[in-house]
């Protein structure tokens, strides 16, 4: 079982938490729960209530819609993160591709944490803003290609 400080070291490399100070990450670490999943076990499926996000510590997780593969989540990857920000049901399913160790964060705990620690909120907003900028850049580049 990982200690809080070991979780902090892990979280530092997770994209969505990269802009949060290490001390603030200790608060995030304190609300994470380790979850072992065996190969082929379903973590969540389409239409489930979105109530938590996950990070991969070991192993791989298949993210798919029906049988179509969306992506494989590996070490340090986050999945189910949008559950933090909307109340929609899951749009994709997550199934363990191999035996895996995950860190899980419950939405309710995370929302409380965000309300209490402005440093965490600020860091996550920065990460989301960066993601959106990248998407916008990519869309812009694709649009240019199509026009050409």
């Amino acid at each position: 079982m990982l200690s809080i400080i070991e979780k902090v070291i892990f979280l530092q490399d997770v994209d969505i938490f990269k802009h949060i100070s290490s001390e603030d990450l200790s608060y995030v670490a304190s609300i994470t729960v380790e979850q072992n999943v065996e190969k082929d076990s379903v973590i969540y499926k389409e239409g489930d209530i979105s109530d938590s996000m996950y990070m991969v510590i070991e192993g791989k997780v298949r993210l798919h819609v029906g049988e179509s593969l969306v992506m494989i989540a590996e070490l340090n990857d986050v999945f189910g993160a949008w559950s933090l920000f909307d109340d929609e049901v899951r749009l994709i399913s997550a199934t363990a591709f191999e035996d895996s160790l995950l860190l899980k964060i419950d939405k309710a705990n995370m929302i409380e944490l965000l309300a209490d620690h402005v440093g965490v909120t600020e860091g996550i907003l920065k990460a989301m803003a960066k993601r959106l900028q990248n998407i916008a850049r990519k869309v812009g580049a694709d649009f240019d290609k199509v026009q050409k």
Partner: peptide
């Protein structure tokens, strides 16, 4: 590395 980044913060 953790100590260095914490000190920077």
């Amino acid at each position: 590395q953790l100590l260095v980044s914490s000190l920077k913060d």
